[in-house]
Design a protein around this nucleic acid. Sequence first.
DNA 1: TAAGCACCTGTGCAACTCCACAGGATGTGC
DNA 2: GCACATCCTGTGGAGTTGCACAGGTGCTTA
Lengths: 240, 240
Amino acid sequence: MDRVFQRFAEQLTESTHRDAAQQSMAEVAAALKLSCFAYLALARRPGSAPNLISTYPPSWTAIYLQRGYESVDPVVRRAMRHPKPFRWGLGFEARSRSEAERALFEEAAKFGIRCGFTFPIHDDKGAIAALSFASDERRSAFERSLVEHAQSLRLIAAFFHAHAKRFWTIDRMVGGVMLSPREYQCLEWSACGKSAGEIGIILGIKERTAGYHLDNARAKLGVSSLRQAIVLLTESKSRK
Amino acid sequence: MDRVFQRFAEQLTESTHRDAAQQSMAEVAAALKLSCFAYLALARRPGSAPNLISTYPPSWTAIYLQRGYESVDPVVRRAMRHPKPFRWGLGFEARSRSEAERALFEEAAKFGIRCGFTFPIHDDKGAIAALSFASDERRSAFERSLVEHAQSLRLIAAFFHAHAKRFWTIDRMVGGVMLSPREYQCLEWSACGKSAGEIGIILGIKERTAGYHLDNARAKLGVSSLRQAIVLLTESKSRK
DNA sequence: TAAGCACCTGTGCAACTCCACAGGATGTGC
DNA sequence: GCACATCCTGTGGAGTTGCACAGGTGCTTA
């Protein structure tokens, strides 16, 4: 079992994409006979989409994200309220559950997500996430494993969250400055070695326009060369 | 306790220097009443110095490293043999201990390092390290904490190792490739926006020579433009 | 001794960057 | 309506990069 955790630590630390992180957690879940897992990081801004890394059935996760089900998920509600781990199942919080929440649970059940155990994550920066392990029915191996490894899984949840949040490269904040969508895009392509002419072809604009956006990016970042701008871009990417 | 581990995960993941990593572990040790800790990563090549991150008394660790005591440390010997955690104290492995090993233990005792608990780390890549918590005498709080948190501490050891080994990355390793001193230097200046002519003036070489080194750096890194090379340089710097 | 590596330097030239000038359109907030 | 931000496009020219050719020295290792 310790080789499993050792391997998880290595893989997660070295993961630079969400697929690798997902794989590292999937291996832990398999070794502990925990079926499937879902790590859900709630958006900072209400109404924005959360971020998910999961081995739940893709047909279910696609629907969940598309319909914004995190807003009517009683597991999420509970996880937001308190960082203490909890069990859930079909009768979970039945008395305080809305009709929409009940419908969500019934729909998830059709995809084999009927019961589970969730580790809420409230980090120092105010972000809230949850790591859940789910199953289609209560199995003694599943339960035994959770009890036996509860403390380790809490640590694993914390580390997974600390790494996973770096994958949400969303905003265009570079060197403390916000670039426009086009400026950011052109700078990214330049960092890939593309010339203004090539960027123009890629984005369907003139070479001159691509150059214009790169000029703007340099000016905003207060640097005199694209190379310096690219350093700032790369640094901001690795900080997230 | 979970806030302690949560905080540790955040701090360790975000640490870019050994001081930050040391601080993250020191806080865990303090919270668990585990006195001081020492993470020792053995060198791959026999005879080379190990790497140490520790809150042991600096007067002791300086002597330990200077005299190469890892080669006569029975704790290290045991940790190299098997990844199972173990306790040690003044009578540790007395029967198989050499005179030099006995002397080492007695010397450490003078610095207040008399007993402890060690988590050996054997990673997938063959590297061997050990995380130890030590004390000047056996205290019930120390023992109780170790028993209670043994499993978490094993995970913590694995994660600490996965992160700490990044600090020993040899200089001038960029994108998995080792650049020559001059190549690295010229690339660093280029990343600051300096042209080959300017680099030549700075380093007291001809513009042509600076360009030659930059050409070599690009070739070694397998990229076609300096911009791409600078991305790799910046990434490798932020990973250290 | 020969080979490999790192460092040094010269030439030429097409493509590209950086900086400067100029023009336009659209959408948003006050 | 006006100001601002973003996006779009044209011109010119000096300086620089990327790629190619060529030469050399000194040190280390098998």
